[in-house]
Design a protein around this nucleic acid. Sequence first.
DNA 1: TTGTAAGCGTTATCAT
DNA 2: ATGATAACGCTTACAA
Lengths: 349, 349
Amino acid sequence: MEETGSRTVSLADVARLAGVSKMTVSNVINNREGMTEQTRQRVQQAIEQSGYVANAAARVLAGGRMNLLGVIAPRINWPYVTELLHGASRVVEQAGLDLAIFTTSDNVRVERERAMLLRTLVDGVLLIIPAADEQTVFGPAVPVVTVGSAGAYTVSVDDRQGGRLAAQHLLDLGHRHIGHVSGLSSVSRHDASDRLDGFAQELNAAGVGLPPHLIADGAFTEAGGEAAARTLLSLPERPTAIFAANDRSAIGVLRAAEQLGLRVPHDLSVVGYDDVQVASLTRPALTTIRQPLEEMGAAAARLLIALIRREVPEQAHPRFPASLVVRDSTAPPGVVQPPDPVRPMKGAT
Amino acid sequence: MEETGSRTVSLADVARLAGVSKMTVSNVINNREGMTEQTRQRVQQAIEQSGYVANAAARVLAGGRMNLLGVIAPRINWPYVTELLHGASRVVEQAGLDLAIFTTSDNVRVERERAMLLRTLVDGVLLIIPAADEQTVFGPAVPVVTVGSAGAYTVSVDDRQGGRLAAQHLLDLGHRHIGHVSGLSSVSRHDASDRLDGFAQELNAAGVGLPPHLIADGAFTEAGGEAAARTLLSLPERPTAIFAANDRSAIGVLRAAEQLGLRVPHDLSVVGYDDVQVASLTRPALTTIRQPLEEMGAAAARLLIALIRREVPEQAHPRFPASLVVRDSTAPPGVVQPPDPVRPMKGAT
DNA sequence: TTGTAAGCGTTATCAT
DNA sequence: ATGATAACGCTTACAA
């Protein structure tokens, strides 16, 4: 009942076939009111007979809605990004919209190009840890919601509190010599400084402190975390615990410890940040500060959809609490915590 | 030097500003030959002054190239998908194109809708483990390359050989009672039957065999793999080794073993399939059959770009070999293999 | 080297 | 309830 071959069927063809005007066909397609049931039937039939498919470009050009949200994210293979997007896609789909995802290779120039492309194609934009403020590119006509950076509308986590939780946990375990693998040198404007601030604040309050030589940058990557940890762990008086700015760099820390022959958590405690799905699978399973990424993605999508519909959103800056997830990578200094053999791995489907 | 506010700057505006015709501006934008350097300069300046951004929809509608490749994938948070796409994005970017990623929630209807949307928007389409043959939607005008299913142009791995490798490895270790967690009930047309065929073939050749009751379906998911493994491991004579149709279901097998108090690899050997990045991070690290996913993604992108340029591709069906990656989840039955404490985790950046 | 004219397929506006 | 017409912003002819 569909396609005949190569030529493209247009709205005009359908109109001719149904013996009505283009406008009527358009109205039927867009589920608008104001036509005989009989007419609607006839048009529907013509559509199916001809195998008509709407031309998205023409629709946009004519000022119609595209029912499309654009996403600009640095990379597609970062778990932080995919978990966020997974949460968003649910909501978007339920609202009858689509999500078009674009990556920038973590590059400011490319990010700008993507923004310019999307500007005319989508009804709204979701910016994930952007490198620049792209608000200017989009102008007031296209709503923008940002995750992991500043913006007119944002979804975020209380990173300062997250940093504090990490510090409290390590202090509670008895650690007094604690290092940090930071995320300061990223391309993105997101530099995890709030996490560091909260962490340092809590350590200072406990009289433990965080001297500069116990901070090394991990650039949010496994390789960066590994290098940073090697630096910290080669110190004359090496730290008994390390807090990493995200889970990926924490995995790098685990790797460095393994290579240096240090047992985690016996010789070194490690705390990550994010609680991406791999965090529950590592050897040992990673204690981490959880960001509810899927929920955040869903919240961002909801906010964006509200803006597109010109509704007034409940909050312009929904903010989620961070939480501590204790697994097997932390223990009191110099003491083995017997691993629980029946601890289930994190559920995921 | 850019935007003035809300109104949208068009090509005509730039032309007026530069004192030339629209055509000349268009030529400058598309880097075409045939104009005075002076004219080009003037136009360039006008473009920057006005903050002009080309309207993608109009360009497409007028028959221009969009320089956009569309991707249709079931989900964004499956490592198989993201690693493939990561490989593709490199190539696409180098060719000066963009990648627009759409997900289908593993749903045939949605897949069809995405296909219809993309049809008029992109220059070519990459189909990742599609549920249906979307060739008919696109027609001959839009090139389509498929990964993980059949099609006019495909990129694949020798799955039969991969299955054989898994069997050989387990046989070499001395296993004689071997189970399989299959991937037969997926929505996608990809049912991993080649993996199973190669696996069974090798077991049969060795006189070990693979009776039906030693096969349970894991639906390619962690939860499915867990359930399937529980079935297999509850058998009166339980298998000493399990081969899973992919790494995600293999992780489910590990989880089931953990819950049943079985130690891997002492009591149970586990082999996965894919070698996604998490495979090197699990407890214990997963022995698996590797698909070179990033390379495959790159190959798919290259093939698609060649088709768009109407070049004749070197091969319509590039095929990659599978390979065995031995880690810590396999050992001879009933024997503990001492773990190597200094084995580095898989590199990843 | 540059300009003119037509049209891509849809929607909005205004008639009927 | 339905139709005619004019945009939308660009590109591909073809003309100058």
